[in-house]
């Protein structure tokens, strides 16, 4: 399950809907990402993406994760557009027979979403300064642990 949308969503309701009806999965793990304020003061975060590539790229990550950890299901919701501090940007949930697989698959999806899903974040400070968020070497290193 996958949704890329500008609209706000309720992560609790999404998690309940995801978990409902699972009978072969003994474990559900979820991660929710929230826009955090910065020391300089953040007015908003603007998230741009590549619509023709975003869905296929994320779906491929989910397929790889499902094969690697024998998942019962996975869910990715990612927003784009203008978000303010405290708003939910995205969530990932995975369901697996046992918790180790669900935790690992959630981390895998997070690492790949961070560096291989075509989103770009721009921070708009309260004084109007605009800064594109740069990818870090740590983000890239995080992928190598899954090789």
């Amino acid at each position: 399950m996958l949704r890329v949308d500008a609209a706000a969503f309720d992560p609790g309701a999404e998690l309940n809907a995801f978990s409902a009806g699972l009978t072969t999965a003994g474990a559900v793990v979820s991660f929710t990402g929230i826009v955090r304020d910065t020391p300089a003061g953040l007015a908003a975060m603007e998230i741009e993406h590549y619509p023709a590539m975003t869905g296929p790229a994320i779906a491929e990550m989910q397929t790889t994760a499902a094969r690697r950890w024998d998942l019962a299901a996975s869910l990715v919701i990612h927003r784009h557009g203008r978000l303010e501090p405290g708003e939910t940007i995205m969530m990932v949930a995975t369901a697996a027979p046992h918790r180790a697989a669900a935790f690992a698959a959630t981390e895998y999806l997070m690492d790949y979403l961070k560096s291989r899903a075509p989103f770009w974040k721009k921070e708009i400070a309260r004084d109007g300064t605009e800064t594109w968020v740069a990818a870090t070497p740590e983000d890239e290193d995080a992928l190598s642990r899954w090789d």
Partner: peptide, 23 residues
């Protein structure tokens, strides 16, 4: 995703962008 040495033969759309910052 492709490299700078990739051939363009048959390609319809080329995208250029900075390293991605999703999540």
């Amino acid at each position: 995703l492709a490299g700078f040495d990739a051939p363009l033969s048959g390609v319809r759309e080329v995208a250029f962008f900075p390293p991605m910052t999703g999540g």
